[in-house]
Amino acid sequence: MTGGPRRRARSFSRLTPYLFIAPAVILFSIFTIYPIIASFLLSFQTRQAGSYVFAGLANYARLISDDYFLTALLNNFTILAIQVPVQLVLALLIAVGLNSALVRFKGAFRVAYFMPAITALVAYSVVFVILLNTDFGLVNYFLHSILKLPKIDWLANPFWAKVGLMMAITWRWTGYNMVIMLAGLQQISGELYEAANIDGAGTVQRFFRITVPMLKPIILFAFILSTIGTLQLFDEPYILTKGGPNNATLTAALYIYRQGFQYFDFGYASAISYVLVAIIAVLSWFQLKIGGADSD
């Protein structure tokens, strides 16, 4: 009350920050936190004759011996192990290329690469289902009629369905990650590269000695985003392959949808969801630990 101007400038009503976050936090509590808690409680319940009864950990216990769930998780991790690194490396290479002084039309390229990420799911799905059609699709037409290669069962062969799925995801998200990395590259000071040039470092050395280390926080950010996205992967398998053939592209999120919306086992679906949340949390924590340990 008696402070001078300096003190007055620093102080703010204790209520102020709460007022600033209030609208968001209230909406968030009602429409995000509350449904999450409700569905979490549901994971301890099971349906009997149309009503829900408490079932303890039965839903969670059931998960352990559920082959389909384990297959789905394995698929998620396969995609995580193969598609995510490929996508991030591609994104990084394109970003470095676009950042190089040698290239013109940067704006046009940026837009071209980012375009797939902004396409509506419905449009994307219809286009890819037709393009990848085994007998009448454009992709096989080029492989078979023009390059004289055998036709590939893109969506119906267990191996190729996985490949096709990963191709589609890569198509959709590489540009998105590229833009994130490009933003990071523009932060790296040119002086670092000049110094390296004087030391006689080649392109490859500069890439590994300067670009990659300087970009580490950004790569980590993109990696965590991609990890969460991959573990929650739903759109592509739902539309392109319906999880088939023979569960080759079944993912955990698709399995949650099936258990809930096709088999009406919402309790079990919730249990799967929270196991998935736990896995994502643990993975993200490890990624931060490993990635963050020697930065800063």
Binding site: S29, I33, I37, A38, L41, A49, G50, S51, Y52, F266
Partner: peptide, 15 residues
């Protein structure tokens, strides 16, 4: 509080 509220909601019973 939210948890208690949630307990009364979510999924409808048989009716």
């Amino acid at each position: 509080v939210l948890t208690l509220l949630a307990g009364f909601s979510g999924i409808a019973g048989a009716g």
